[in-house]
Design a protein around this nucleic acid. Sequence first.
DNA 1: GTTAGCACTCACCGGTTGAGAGTGCTAACA
DNA 2: TGTTAGCACTCTCAACCGGTGAGTGCTAAC
Lengths: 353, 353
Amino acid sequence: MGMDERKFRILQAIIDDYILTAVPVGSRTISKKYDMGLSSATIRNEMSDLEELGYLDQPHVSAGRVPSAKAYRLYVDQMLASGRIRSDRPEAVVAHLNARTHQMEDVIDQAAQVLSSLTNYTAVVLPPTKPQPIIRTLQLVPVTQNSVLVVVVTDGGIVRDSVIPVSGSLDADALYSISRSLTEQLSGHTLAEATAMLPQIAARMRDNERLLAQLGGFFEETEEHAQRGHVGIGGASNMLSYPEYSDAEKARGFLSLIETRDKLASIIAHHGDVAFTVRIGPETGVPEISDCSIVTATYSTRSGRQGTIGVIGPTRMQYSRVISVLGAMGQQLSQLFGTQDAEKESPKGSDQT
Amino acid sequence: MGMDERKFRILQAIIDDYILTAVPVGSRTISKKYDMGLSSATIRNEMSDLEELGYLDQPHVSAGRVPSAKAYRLYVDQMLASGRIRSDRPEAVVAHLNARTHQMEDVIDQAAQVLSSLTNYTAVVLPPTKPQPIIRTLQLVPVTQNSVLVVVVTDGGIVRDSVIPVSGSLDADALYSISRSLTEQLSGHTLAEATAMLPQIAARMRDNERLLAQLGGFFEETEEHAQRGHVGIGGASNMLSYPEYSDAEKARGFLSLIETRDKLASIIAHHGDVAFTVRIGPETGVPEISDCSIVTATYSTRSGRQGTIGVIGPTRMQYSRVISVLGAMGQQLSQLFGTQDAEKESPKGSDQT
DNA sequence: GTTAGCACTCACCGGTTGAGAGTGCTAACA
DNA sequence: TGTTAGCACTCTCAACCGGTGAGTGCTAAC
């Protein structure tokens, strides 16, 4: 028993129906609504096979079937391979995006807004990646017996600090000399480079291994934070209209994930160079949204820096629509940032003071 | 029958209990948990009176009583008058707010974060008000027979545009001459001034009354938008944990209100000069949150500009706690922005490019 | 290989019932 | 006159129950 053409057509019908209704779909529904020229009994047999193959789940014995993550995966791969997706509907995107202000952050926010209202899911827009900040100074300040405050100043005036625990007791003088030594060695390097250099340094001044390890974590965190600017989010409330999230506790979990923008951004952030990414259910790697899918696309600025746009929705997402809307939006943003790069990206202090 | 001391004490007990439990409170509960030295029957009589006076509502005949908005009002007024509120707990606020980055926007976001996690409600933080943008140019462009695109350029490079409907048909030339004339008259003025000037101008060139009226609205909208910078929001998902918002549709309404930051900001924005504002239920004037209360406080920068912080929660809010936390946070922000005003408020283009 | 038929399973709905909480009223009491 | 005990009454809520319908798996016939 393998996956033949007919099985695939039936599976597709099931997915289509389930995406529409969110109700487990039975054999009769398929044989009637989607005319396959087959009786419900035959469909039943095929469905049973599909379940055995892992494409369908059955909530309970006398309910219809529900597509599994594996099924959606197949469905989406097939869809992408067939080239049926064109990024159509640029008109809608243009219409919404056009007539407004032109600050970078506003564009980002608006893009998220438009994406969410066109798809009815939750949209996230990340600004183009930024060049890596370079360390200027690093300073350790004693706070209590076993914690120190670490302050990093980078070029561009970004300051970040945090309290980290230390094991041995270190007095102010010791900390100061460590600070000097670290500043000397790390100054001029990016945070990523610094992180890579720490183990070496730790080897040399091995009294403070634990401290330096902590420092590595802090660098990574700081870098992530510095990397991303304003994250645009739209339509978080849309999620509440899907029966998947009628459970208050689940909804709460989802929303608090959305609220922690840093976490959200690192989830959405595009890995690799492909035009689209589709992550389905558990593929997202985030337990809170294990029954969601994430579709992302990229756009790029004239200077070659890339930004990410993404849509989060239930696994029974209208993938084709989402992908096509994302495509259109990606193009639009690329165009917008491509043509007027300089203007858009540096709003100066104009509206800040 | 008036409001005597005893009635007030009973009312207070009812409110305290209801704030804690969200369950209609009965006479027996009061006589047992809060020892008043009165039997439940007596309390019952008093409660009946309180209901007649409009301080209590009864969901149905055999349920306990629930405080009305009027009751909360009395409760809060009394609390404020008694001076029982000191803005204590600055330690907690300081602890959370201290050890972090120092960009204006980050501080705002973090303040919202801290407020929401200390109160378990939804927090909103508005940045200090900005100086009014001044009009440089105004341009009208025909779009269709009965709509024109209006573009305003202000100092600071802020551009805003929008399509507005017009009645009579106007050709490009006519629009251009109107644009020139308007630019001439309005250039150099703030948007607020311009709004005030429009009626006069309309009187002079009275063919286009409707157009100018529309323009007024547009100015106001633009001003509002320009006025506010980044709005910090924290703990929107907290609201879902209260039984008041277990209804999905209601929760959705609340969240989409929170999502439209402009609207939210204008709701929160502080009117007047008082230290605190407490708006209870219908007093908020926003139907979507007619069973919420909003507490706001202000902070100010060295340059005398004011920002607003606010907390939104169910009407059965822990007012005293919220007010004290807001007080502490207000002080903290004032201090933060007061001492290092210049630095904090103009992050330059540093992290933008 | 396909289909009709049939027995079986279960979620879901609507009505019923009993328990519990709370009230309002009345009458007795201090 | 204010307070309290007692009691009948109301109404929600949760549990229970049986019927209904959708859907399945299996078998036997085509």
